[in-house]
């Protein structure tokens, strides 16, 4: 249906990535890494006083989204690209039944109400929600997990090709989180949906995305297929991030804290932004900011002076 390139984005500090049709990517980073800003930039709604100083977003091979008139941007939103936020309770209007909120969306996009409600019922079933109960409920009558599932259903209502999820499970209990992840995985497979999944917890995305982007201090430090990145992280930050997640089984002695505080964007050092917390720092890191280098063989990109694709290849 649409060209292979869904979107190219350049935001925060020289952040570019491509999401292919049916592909899911995870954006991982600590708070303050700029991952949420990227999400807002995707919809040209970076909160004031922020603004997108530079860069382009292309949806479905079309012209730069950022230069479109607002009315045209609105059309894309919900219909082609949708967003799910962390705090579902804040995106649902507390005073309206879910059914009414669905009808409002239909109205805003000149859609037929009854048809949309039928779609909504189907979606509820997919989300393991009782359609009669969920649609007639006020948001406060639903549990956190149910609300998050409802907001995912709302996002999928107009059958978008791309869904951006900003920490959609952080506020949920383990079992609710698992249910949301399981459903997202099913939906994405059955609908050929592209996901951009933003989180601070790598383990959350490991089962659901194809590719992971690790961000630090507003920059991409590593990208690659998720399994490879988890098995063999190349950037010291990724290694630290993964090393701070205690394994469920096996050796615990390798688990250690990522030292230091997340980078303060107001006072970034010259050179590599991660240098203060990096165990492998050497002289060059304090003067030269590493650029992202691509290893064509493994489709991995790393921004670290210690990463050399050629030698990596030989080593393997």
């Amino acid at each position: 249906m649409f060209p292979s390139e869904v979107g190219t984005l350049k935001a925060v500090e020289d952040v570019s990535f491509v999401v292919h049709a049916g592909e899911s990517i995870g954006i991982v980073g600590e708070s303050g890494s700029g991952k949420s800003t990227v999400a807002f930039a995707l919809f040209d709604s970076v909160p004031a006083p922020g603004e997108i100083a530079q860069g382009e977003i292309h949806y479905f091979g079309q012209s730069n989204f950022l230069q479109w008139p607002e009315s045209k941007q609105r059309e894309v939103f919900w219909q082609k690209v949708a967003m799910v936020f962390q705090a579902a309770q804040n995106t649902l209007n507390p005073l309206l039944r879910i059914r009414q909120q669905i009808l409002d969306i239909a109205d805003a996009h000149d859609m037929d109400g009854t048809r949309i409600l039928r779609t909504a019922r189907d979606l509820c079933t997919t989300m393991y929600l009782d359609p009669d109960r969920a649609l007639n409920a006020y948001p406060h009558e639903l549990s956190g997990g149910m609300k998050q599932r409802v907001s995912i259903a709302l996002a999928l209502l107009l059958n978008p090709a791309l869904v951006v999820l900003d920490e959609p499970t952080t506020a949920l209990d383990v079992i609710s989180q698992a249910s949301v992840l399981r459903i997202l995985n099913d939906v994405r497979k059955s609908r050929q949906l592209s996901l951009v999944f933003i989180t601070h917890d790598v383990s959350v995305v490991s089962e659901i995305v194809d590719r992971v982007i690790v961000m630090y201090a507003g920059r991409i430090v590593e990208t690659g297929p998720v399994r490879q990145v988890i098995q063999q992280p190349k950037h010291p930050y990724t290694r630290g991030l993964l090393g701070s997640i205690p394994p469920l089984r096996g050796d615990l002695s390798q688990t250690r804290a990522l030292s230091g505080q997340p980078a303060n964007l107001l006072h970034l050092p010259a050179g590599c932004p991660f240098q203060d917390r990096c165990p492998d720092r050497f002289e060059r890191c304090t003067v030269e900011t590493p650029v992202i280098v691509k290893d064509p063989a493994s489709h991995r990109e790393v921004a670290c002076h210690l990463f050399h694709p050629e030698t990596e290849e030989r080593a393997q």
């Binding site: 393991y128 698992a178 383990s203 959350v204 988890i230 997640i245």
Partner: peptide, 20 residues
Amino acid sequence: AVPILEGREERVNDVVPLRY
């Protein structure tokens, strides 16, 4: 329900509760 680190860990059994 714990999200596993795909590539490092493997889930060999998946006990899903009847209700979430």
